[in-house]
Simulated assay, not measured.
Amino acid sequence: MRERLERYQVVAYLVAVLAGLLVGTRSPALAESLAVGLWPLLGALLYATFTQVPLLALRRALVNARFLSAAVLGHFVAIPLLVWLLVQGLPAEPALRLGVLLVLLVPCTDWFLSFTHLGGGDTPTAIAFTPLSLLLQLALLPLYLWLFLGQAELAGLLQRELLLAFGGLILLPLAAAWLTERWAAGRPRRERGVAALGWLPVPLLALVLFVVAAGQVGQVREFLGLLLWLVPLFVAFLGAALLLARWLARAFRLPARQGRVLAFGFGSRNSFVVLPLALALPAGLEMAVAVVVIQSLVELVGMLAFLHLVPRLFPDAAQAAGTR
């Protein structure tokens, strides 16, 4: 039954997104009230995901030099260069360019872990990389903004949001999952209870998608004219991220499951963290909010496509043998 749930997860996610868009259109007040539950839902999603991961494997993942080299090169050298190239084709509108830079320069540190897990990636390796990813974001984002836009003063606000998100969405669920693992160790009844939490990631992710779609449809409607520019740009980014992951996985001779981590990591951005920052920007930069919203909705659809594409592009040994 659980295998069937995961097999049809993409259908569940698409239904959740469509239902969210409908609710956001018909009942904006309800959608706004639902948005309060986004971070608790993300925290619950990551806790349920972490409980299904052998956390003791994190130490081994931390010393995986080949993966760490590929991930750092991709996230913090290749992708910033790609983003800079993509921005050159946009109109010379500061708020538009700022929004694109904010949302594409910062790698995701939350729900990409769940997509990695659901897509058959090496989740312990993904979790182990997250603290390093956050530290590099905090250190390099001021430099990126200064080089690309001359807006280093905005980095301090973003750093606070990143730290809050890391504490609330990564450290707390991870600590709770570790304590749960210790509590259940060696006790079959408790271990069965922890295993039963494996049913939760799919419905919880569907709820997250519902809330995001419901809460952000209004922003998209307000700046519909941006869709002409941004949707092709964000789709191109997802395609380039997928190709980059495949190339780096081959160049560094990574196992298929670690290649999947690169694919989901490169394709997903920290839109849930950047959105509060964009909302706090000074008057006249409201367009940046719409940019973040549109990217997050494009990414939702993109990650659903990734769940189908990534296992095919990065087949494990059993899959590769079955295709011969």
Rank of each mutant, 00 (worst) to 15 (best):
L154Y: 15
A185R: 15
G156E: 14
Q159D: 13
L164Y: 14
E161N: 13
P188L: 04
L149K: 03
L162C: 04
L162I: 06
L149V: 09
L179K: 07
L179G: 06
Y144N: 01
L147Y: 08
G156I: 05
P188Q: 12
E181N: 13
W178E: 08
P188E: 09
L179P: 03
P188S: 04
R182K: 14
L169A: 00
R160W: 15
P173E: 04
F148Q: 11
Q151E: 14
L143F: 12
R182T: 06
A185Y: 02
L169H: 05
F148I: 00
F148E: 10
P173C: 10
F148G: 09
F148P: 02
T180K: 11
L174G: 00
Q159M: 13
L179C: 11
G150N: 02
L163N: 10
R189C: 04
G167P: 05
L164W: 15
L149H: 13
L162N: 08
Y144V: 02
G156R: 13
I170W: 12
L174V: 01
L145Y: 10
G156D: 05
Y144T: 00
G186V: 05
E181T: 08
R189E: 12
E181L: 06
Q159P: 12
R160F: 14
F166V: 02
A165P: 06
G186Q: 04
Q151F: 15
L172N: 01
L143I: 11
G167T: 06
Q151I: 00
W183C: 00
A165K: 04
G150R: 00
L143W: 15
A185L: 10
L154I: 09
A176M: 10
F148V: 09
G150V: 13
A155C: 00
A152S: 12
L145N: 02
L172T: 02
L163Y: 09
R182Q: 14
F148Y: 14
P188A: 11
L164C: 06
L149A: 15
L164A: 09
L147W: 08
L174W: 07
L149G: 10
F148L: 15
L147F: 02
L162Y: 03
L174I: 01
A175R: 06
R182A: 10
A185C: 04
Q151V: 06
F148C: 13
W183I: 02
R187K: 10
L157D: 13
E161Y: 13
T180F: 08
A155V: 01
L149S: 15
I170H: 04
F166E: 01
F166W: 12
L145G: 07
L157Q: 15
A177R: 11
A152P: 05
